[in-house]
């Protein structure tokens, strides 16, 4: 793991009123790696994702990508800088068609497609996530899993450098899980950097190059999946959780 640092998270603090959700967290994300952000529920993983994508402003500290300061930029500019995401609770626009949902990703970011080229491009992203022949259905009529795929296709459509996946694999059956893991791996092979928040341990073991383990707003371990999962502190933090 000697590739360059792409994303730098430094001393980031997030407070909600009196509650400290993120307590001075620092870590690096390297280019072309899959970084797992793991930890028990309520440890601050999703909040961390929200800080990186700009959905929430940080109380203190900074986040930078390629030496460009992302903190304090509005969400749309962070998106345009090349960070795309999916949400823990899937967010698609039910009243739009599947194709339109995906197109949304490629019009206003650094990809600025329109017209026929946009439709073709969006169609390709749908194929990529395994959705064929349903592009003109209303997104509301899709199953939850398919909606998650639409969401990923939308994120991909913006051609991001960094893609944030918030429990994207949750709720998949074993076959779907395998396809999902393959899909995420192929994103890294495309040269993208992936940060994923995940509870599925199989996926973490087989996908992640490195893991950052959080507990109650702090980082308690960093390293390869094998290393961190053997760490007694991590095991303790997970006790009572669905740790296999």
């Amino acid at each position: 793991m000697s590739s360059a640092v792409l994303l730098e998270v430094r001393n980031v603090v997030k407070r909600f009123g009196g509650l400290v959700a993120i307590n001075g967290v620092s870590f690096d994300v390297h280019e072309h790696e899959v970084l797992g952000l793991i930890g028990p529920n309520g440890s601050g993983k999703t909040t961390m994702m929200n800080l990186i994508s700009g959905a929430l402003p940080a109380t203190d500290g900074y986040i930078a990508m390629d030496d460009k300061l992302l903190t304090d930029l509005p969400t749309r500019k962070i998106a345009r800088a090349g960070i795309a995401r999916t949400f823990q609770l899937v967010r698609v626009i039910p009243s739009m068609t599947v194709l339109e949902n995906v197109m949304a990703g490629a019009v206003f970011g650094h990809k600025k497609l329109w017209g026929h080229a946009l439709a073709v491009y969006a169609e390709r992203q749908l194929e990529r996530v395994g959705l064929v022949g349903i592009s003109h259905k209303l997104t509301a009529d899709l199953t939850y899993i398919d909606q998650k795929r639409v969401e990923l296709a939308r994120a991909l459509a913006s051609d991001p450098k960094v893609i944030l996946l918030d429990e994207w694999l949750a709720g998949l059956n074993p076959t779907e899980l395998q396809t999902g893991i393959e899909l995420i791996r192929s994103l890294r092979d495309d040269g993208r950097t992936v940060i994923l928040v995940e509870h599925v341990m199989d996926a973490i073991r087989s996908l992640c190059d490195r893991c950052v383990v959080m507990s109650t707003g702090n980082i308690i371990a960093q390293g390869t999946p094998a290393e961190v999962l053997a760490d007694p502190q991590v095991i303790e933090a997970y006790l009572g959780e669905d740790y296999e």
Binding site: T75, R91, M96, A104, V107, H110
Partner: peptide, 24 residues
């Protein structure tokens, strides 16, 4: 136009719009 598309996305889910790079 793109503006019309943007406003439909905004009406659907403002958070998605922001994360898609739209100046809401």
């Amino acid at each position: 136009s793109r503006l019309g598309f943007a406003i439909r996305i905004i009406g659907g889910d403002e958070s998605v719009a922001k994360h898609s790079g739209i100046n809401v």
